[in-house]
């Protein structure tokens, strides 16, 4: 902003924005607070906000009873694995489209995007059936593959828009300097694109972590990630607010932290580069 604002105006802005920000954040805050209460305090009437006996008991109980670590581990493997796999497949594809564009490049990009728009429910049964046939139902491998495929268009798109910003002359210079294609991608492109690749990684981990259609429908016990873990609280255990809160807090904490780091890239990733 080019000009100074009166302190009064700035104070009003600040108060309004903080009030609204806290209001929006409140459900998360409340969940986190509740996770440290006893069950009795969690449903006390009137509700207690800060002045209660803080306890870690709920976390211990949740971990013990539902084996939180196993679900967490599944989430980590599935979200991380699908993203890494997607990057490994996506980097060469994005390189091709960004640096060796042809008349069809745009069509291919648009087509890839269109696969992302296929409603999952429309292909639920075929995938379900294929998973049974291939023995992939309720396996981490199967879920990793599916999440990789649904996020691959976003990965390629994000990488493509980042690669586009790298001048082609630098890669040509590497080629003149005697670098092979592999060396060109490994020594020049990848280090230069680290910020872009990192944000692609981050955003896709978030998307995969929170994916709640395939993870609910293609897993049962063995491969279920945190989305399914939480869904299992829907009843009747959901009535134990403190424990539900502890479980929820554990499920969202890792991603909240990652999300705060990647908020700027989020826009570009989710609008397919249409808003920067």
């Amino acid at each position: 902003m080019a000009r100074a604002v009166t302190p009064r105006r700035k104070t009003i802005n600040t108060l309004a924005a903080w009030a609204i920000g806290l209001l929006i954040f409140f459900p998360i805050l409340w969940t986190i607070l509740t996770s440290f209460k006893t069950e009795a305090q969690a449903i006390s009437d009137p509700p207690v906000f800060l002045f209660f006996d803080w306890t870690l008991e709920n976390y211990a109980v949740v971990q013990e009873r539902s084996d939180y670590m196993r679900f967490l581990w599944n989430s980590v493997i599935i979200a991380g694995g699908s993203t890494l796999l997607g990057i490994v497949i996506g980097v060469p594809a994005a390189w091709s489209m960004a640096f060796v564009p042809s008349k069809r490049t745009k069509d291919i990009l648009m087509w890839m995007l269109s696969t992302k728009m296929l409603p999952a429910v429309g292909v639920l049964y075929p995938i379900y059936l294929l998973f049974i046939k291939l023995g992939l139902l309720d396996t981490r491998v199967g879920l990793t593959l599916v999440l990789m495929l649904i996020n691959l268009p976003i990965i390629i798109w994000m990488l493509y828009t980042y690669f586009k910003e790298i001048p082609g002359e630098i890669l040509e210079a590497a080629r003149m300097d005697g670098a092979t294609l592999k060396e060109e991608i490994l020594y020049i492109l990848t280090p230069m694109a680290v910020p872009g690749i990192a944000s692609t990684l981050l955003l896709n981990i978030i998307l995969a972590w929170n994916e709640a259609f395939w993870t609910l429908n293609l897993t049962a016990a063995k491969a279920a990630p945190l989305t399914a873990f939480i869904a299992s609280y829907s009843s009747p255990e959901g009535l134990f607010y403190a424990k539900l809160s502890a479980a929820s807090t554990m499920a969202i904490a890792p991603i909240l932290i990652l999300g705060w780091f990647s908020q700027k890239q989020l826009v570009r990733g989710l609008t397919f580069g249409a808003v920067k």
């Binding site: 600040t14 924005a17 459900p27 709640a212 969202i252 991603i255 999300g259 705060w260």
Partner: peptide, 27 residues
């Protein structure tokens, strides 16, 4: 608008997007 703590407010506002759908529904 200009304000104090813009970055923090931004984070507060964005947070719900990172909450997994099953969690927000249950909460």
């Amino acid at each position: 608008q200009p304000m104090w703590g813009q970055g923090i407010v931004r984070i507060l506002v964005i947070a719900p997007f990172f909450v997994m759908p099953t969690v927000s529904a249950l909460v």
